[in-house]
Nucleic acid binder design. Structure first.
Lengths: 192, 192
DNA sequence: GTCTATAGATAGATAGAC
DNA sequence: GTCTATCTATCTATAGAC
């Protein structure tokens, strides 16, 4: 509604970035406050339920960033294969830059919390399902049948998530580019 | 060499399990000691460099477990597609059981430490490359050309890693089974 | 809405006895 | 090889002034 960057938004943006890079357990509230420059006394005012509440909203923000980026890149191409090639090329470039990987993957926070923080696990599960739904919907736009699109949607989600981990570890976007090529083949083959 | 379970091995096995479930930052030395039942004063005797040293050896153990399991399941089938279908079916069953996911994935510890613990990141990078090499080698056993095998090897590593994250989050092995089907198609298509 | 101060717990790590 | 005791740092969270 209002364009102004209020304290809550600043905290949330910083937390989102740190959670993505260091994970939930690796990020302290102190660090979030320090790096955001937000008033130290304000964190429990804006997030009465503490760290877990911040994480839930951060996951929601990651979801938004991924969905927006993907939707934009995946639309208006001449085929599903071309759409995902274009999208993943952009994702790979982000890993090459190595600065900011905001909104790229929730895999870290998902696997960290799956056994230990049920509410966070559930949030991540819902986001992954949104990713699958997005990919399936895109495939249907390019002519895939619903059943086939849903089947491949989860595969695309897994491939991208896994390739993000490899790219983070290798410190470059090459793994993304490699799976992009194979995904393209897969899509051309499945295209009816 | 000796079959006896010494204290160091007990600590290492417990640490490996905990790191896989909770990550590096989510696992404390106290918890490792408590759950292993190892003598509390012995941890810095066996691992003078502390937590990071334990993690490096734990990563090495995860590597061993994955490679052994994969190598066994992937050998002696009649095609690459059949081999990976068999292997991934076994992996999926482990996630259904939800008890022990030892030696299933190093993605969590890799992405947790990529930006913050260079030595651990490097260890994980080497392990991922071993995975790729294993998969490529298996594909060559089933008649793939070297170049093609290496190209697909990294894709398989990414798919499995990503599907493991989805399966951990969803608390069942279905994502693994889904990618197994698509991987099978991909292999049949690439097979010369 | 923001501040300081601090509680209360736990972290990783070290020293020195045995 | 193992033990206890302890140090220091950090963490999440709360209380209460402004």
């Amino acid at each position: 509604m209002k364009g102004k960057q209020n304290t809550k938004d600043i905290i949330l943006q910083t937390a989102t970035r740190l959670f993505q890079r260091q994970g939930y357990n690796g990020t302290g509230l102190n660090q979030i406050i320090e790096e955001s420059g937000a008033p130290k006394g304000s964190i429990y005012y804006h997030f009465p339920n503490g760290k877990e509440e911040i994480a839930i909203e951060a996951i929601s923000m990651m979801r938004k960033l991924v969905l927006e980026g993907a939707e934009k890149d995946l639309s208006g191409k001449s085929s599903a294969a071309e759409a995902f090639e274009y999208y993943l090329d952009n994702v790979a470039a982000i890993f090459d830059a190595r600065e900011c990987i905001d909104g790229l993957s929730i895999g870290l926070i998902a696997s960290e919390t799956a056994f230990t923080h049920e509410r966070l696990r559930y949030s991540c599960e819902m986001v992954f399902k949104d990713f699958q739904t997005l990919y399936a919907g895109i495939l249907m736009q390019y002519g895939f049948k619903r059943e086939s699109a849903e089947e491949i949607g989860i595969t695309i989600a897994a491939m991208i998530e896994g390739a993000c981990i490899l790219s983070i570890t290798y410190q470059n976007g090459n793994p993304i580019r490699r799976i992009a090529k194979q995904l393209s083949l897969l899509l051309k083959m499945n295209q009816e």
